[in-house]
Design a protein around this nucleic acid. Structure first.
Length: 812
RNA sequence: GGGGCUGUGGCGGAAUUGGCAGACGCACCAGAUUUAGGUUCUGGCGUUCGAGAGGACGUAAGGGUUCAAGUCCCUUCAGCCCCACCA
């Protein structure tokens, strides 16, 4: 039978059209199949396909297809959201209703996406711009408000002048906005809404021990550092003037006898009382300087406040200083400086000539002599000259002294976290409105549940800098108070869109529910997510937020699982021109271009082939032709051997062995590592063997070979696999057919190749039956001419034999 | 400053448990097919010495453990990522 040329367009469009409305992986709830829930980050609703998502589709799509063939129940939904708005379209964000803008793009996007990824459950599409989604965002907000998990306070916030909005701490990168790395973030004081993520700080940290198995260590480390738990004590020093307490946080209360000053952050509230006009000006200058500089470049600076504090343990008086390296946002905003036992304090005190008093000695040494101390001793040791605690170990002293402080009312053991509450207010049009009303009489009043959702007005004008465009829409702002009925103002802040991404995967399980965010029974069925695939850039933002949301929803009583994701996979980024490919950098390459040229099969397979998925991949299209050539080779081989192509049969055994070895190899790589690049490489090897031995394959063996080849290709090149599947007379989707199994007997080589080494260097090879004894192997190796020549005149000191593998002679 | 990751041909990468370094592909070279180009098929392709058979060297650099090291240990260098006056 004559071969057919590989025309990717004809094949892909044919199946694309036939599959237009098919849902191959439609979730079968309550089926007896094992559950498998793949989630991918959402496609961005921008005009061009974001190439980073091609990688998502490649990985998740291939995996879903494979899992389905292995008999798993796959929920693999597609979602649409409002975040990821291109920076250059910031104007749009303030003008076009998110919903309209998103819907406009969805239609165009679907076409391209379907060709790349048709394994989604389209019924479970969730758009986070839909009023229904707003409703449940707002419902969650009000639930949190009831429970004290949402609150409002005046706060210094990070402000991006370009976005004209507030940023969460997590969204500030090197002092700049995460979307505008050339725009320094400013500090502004605004009334802001916060979610009390700190209430879960401890659990977010300790629960991580359950995730160790399925999450990358790297991500867990980042989260641990971000949450930043440290154990210590809070101690009240007394202001010498009037006895009012100055609370400091320390992890080393055992060193408190060595505290030679107390240092306040420049923005510490007590400064208002302590400092004169000049001091206040200096403190303010420090705050401003800090906002605009790289933290690493700022030199330690400070000045004496003119006041003293009393050490509650020793009773001694120490000066109170103001210094720029003390942060108001961490601990209590005040520290006790122990220069003898802390790097920073040492540097600071030496600079300003403040006393250094050693009080901890190394376990095997003496107390450091001062003056003349060159560097602080920061490790644990034994405390000395510390009153009744002298002689204790640092650990023991820490415990006892903290307890003593509590007992006497001037302190207590304390745990401090680095993580701060999540500021969710955005002065931006693009987001879920925060559902509260400000009434001059009643204060902050929640919008009653039956009035949800509060939706965004359409067709609004951009305002000037710094205020929500919603403030200029009277029909939105002017409302009656739900409590007293009087005139009131609606909140104009909208929610951070990370709220949307924190729970959308729950909504996937029940996307059309109009009475609840989702049916708890459905969540109980699907969750936890078995496998989540996302970019590594979400390690601390999205992944901490969604863990927080899960715990919050559990405490509301909606769900039972403690964590959203059982196993987490962070894929590498796509790099172009040496930079992370992203819209704001402007180096996005349209992968649909490649797909249009060489086909979606080639584009997908090429991305998978380029590198293992956890690694970043440099986008260059040079290698794509190779993949295209390969697919053509496969197709031509299959079509010319459909029938009556019987060969001699002399190669059957060899080819079938290779076939079974390939199935074995790919199955292994799929199950354990997801190294699709080696999967594809081994299919290529197989095809090379098929070409070399084509004439020797019998008509009896050929159908099995072609069919298996189609099945092996199905996860990577579904259109081609399907086409071959049909050509050989099979019906229905190829990936509904079970993944091929391999026969270990057939996969095994007849004989083992034994490597013969002399002093660890390869000198010869020989074939031997499996299980040949060590003695016989050594004997046969010695018989080899070349080996004999190498051993001539030398003495064999030792012979190492690894059965079925190698013989090594050690000679002198 | 702290934590983590990476370093293999001209390039992307393979080597899953310490056991043949460079699978597979790109690029390049040659041959066959073709009027020619393209396509397709076949072969070559780490460096170096050698006419050849064959030898020596070779996984960032140096050292160590081992019969055997890309893989394990130590030191150094380079690059990337995260955190960063966190008391």
């Amino acid at each position: 039978m004559p071969e057919k040329p590989y025309d990717h367009n004809q094949i892909e469009l044919k199946w694309h059209d036939r599959w237009e409305n098919a849902d191959f992986y439609k979730a079968e709830e309550n089926s007896s199949k094992p559950k498998f829930y793949v989630l991918e980050m959402l496609p961005y609703p921008s005009g061009t396909l974001h190439i980073g998502h091609i990688r998502n589709y490649s990985i998740g799509d291939a995996l879903a297809r494979y899992k389905w063939m292995r008999g798993f129940n796959v929920l693999h939904p597609m979602g649409w959201d409002a975040f990821g708005l291109p920076a250059e379209n910031a104007a749009i964000a303030n003008k076009v209703p998110p919903r309209e803008w998103t819907l406009r793009n969805i239609a165009a996007m679907k076409k391209t996406h379907r060709r790349f990824a048709f394994s989604y459950d389209w019924d479970r599409e969730v758009s986070t711009c839909e009023p229904e989604y707003y409703r449940w965002n707002q419902w969650f907000f009000l639930e949190m408000l009831k429970r004290g998990l949402a609150y409002r306070k005046r706060a210094l916030v990070n402000w991006c002048p370009k976005c004209a909005t507030v940023l969460a701490n997590e969204q500030v990168v090197e002092g700049c906005c995460w979307r505008h790395d050339d725009t320094p973030v400013e500090q502004r004081a605004l009334e802001q809404w916060f979610l009390k993520i700190t209430a879960y700080a401890d659990e977010l940290l300790t629960a991580m021990s359950d995730l160790e198995e399925g999450w990358p260590e790297r991500v867990l480390t980042m989260q641990r550092n971000w949450i930043g738990r440290s154990e210590g004590a809070e101690i009240d020093f007394k202001l010498a003037d009037d006895g009012q307490p100055i609370r400091v946080f320390t992890t080393r209360v055992d060193t408190i006898y060595g505290a030679t000053c107390v240092i306040l952050a420049p923005e510490h509230p007590l400064n208002e009382q302590l400092l004169d006009a000049e001091g206040k000006a200096r403190a303010k200058a420090m705050v401003d300087a800090r906002a605009n500089k790289d933290p690493g470049d700022i030199e330690k600076e400070g000045f004496f406040s003119g006041h003293y504090a009393i050490n509650p343990f020793s009773g001694g008086q120490v000066p109170i200083w103001i210094a720029n390296f003390v942060l108001m946002g961490y601990g209590t905003g005040a520290i006790m400086a122990v220069p003898a036992h802390d790097e920073r304090d040492f540097e600071f005190c030496r600079k300003y000539g403040i006393a250094v008093v050693p009080v901890v000695r190394p376990l095997d040494g003496a107390l450091a002599a001062e003056p003349g101390m060159k560097e602080p001793f920061t490790e644990y040791g034994l405390v000395e000259n510390t009153g009744q605690w002298s002689g204790l170990t640092s650990e023991e002293a820490r415990r006892q002294m903290a307890a003593f402080a509590k007992q006497h009312g001037f302190g207590e053991p304390a745990i401090t976290f680095r993580i701060k509450d999540w500021g969710i207010s955005r002065q931006r049009y693009w987001g879920t409105p925060i559902p509260v009303i400000h009434c001059p009489k009643c204060g902050v009043v929640p919008v009653p549940e039956d009035q949800l959702p509060v939706i965004l007005p359409e067709r609004i004008e951009i305002t000037g800098e710094g205020r929500s465009p919603l403030e200029n829409v009277p029909s939105f702002v002017n409302v009656n108070c739900p409590q007293c009925g009087g005139a009131a103002r609606r909140e104009t802040d909208t929610m951070d869109t990370f709220i949307d991404s924190s729970w959308y995967f729950y909504r996937y399980c029940d996307p059309h529910n109009s009475t609840m965010p989702f049916d708890p029974a459905k969540i109980a069925y699907w969750f936890e997510i078995d496998q989540y695939i996302g970019g590594v850039e979400h390690a601390i933002l999205h992944l901490i937020y969604s863990r927080f949301f899960t715990k919050m929803m559990r405490d509301i009583g909606l769900i039972q699982n403690n964590e959203p994701v059982r196993r987490m996979f962070t894929q590498g980024m796509v790099i172009a021109e040496g930079k992370k490919m992203s819209k704001s950098v402007g180096n996005v390459v349209g992968a649909d271009l490649l797909a249009g040229e060489l086909g979606a099969d080639t584009a997908r397979m090429f991305v998978l082939f380029a590198a293992p998925p956890e690694k970043e991949v440099d986008w260059r299209r040079e290698g794509a032709e190779g993949v295209y050539r390969f697919l053509g080779r496969v197709y031509r081989f299959a079509t010319r051997n459909l029938e009556g192509a019987g060969g001699s049969g002399e190669s059957d055994r060899k080819v079938l062995r290779k076939l079974h070895q390939t199935v074995k190899k790919i199955t292994g790589d799929f199950e354990t590592r997801w190294h699709f690049n080696t999967c594809i490489a081994s299919i290529m090897e197989l095809v090379n063997v098929l070409y070399a031995d084509e004439a020797g394959i019998s008509a009896a063996a050929m159908p099995q070979i072609v069919e298996t080849l189609a099945l092996l290709l199905a996860p990577f090149a579904p259109y081609l696999a399907q086409e071959i599947w049909e050509e050989i007379g099979n019906e229905g989707p190829v990936f509904r057919y079970p993944w091929p199994s391999f026969n270990p007997e057939l996969a095994r080589e007849d004989e083992a190749e034994i490597v013969v080494q002399v002093n660890g260097k390869l000198r010869a090879r020989m074939m031997a039956a499996f299980g040949t004894s060590k003695e016989e192997l050594a004997e046969r190796a010695l018989a080899d001419e070349k080996v004999r020549a190498m051993l001539d005149g030398k003495q064999v000191v030792k012979t190492v034999v690894v059965p079925d593998k190698l013989v090594n002679f050690v000679v002198k």
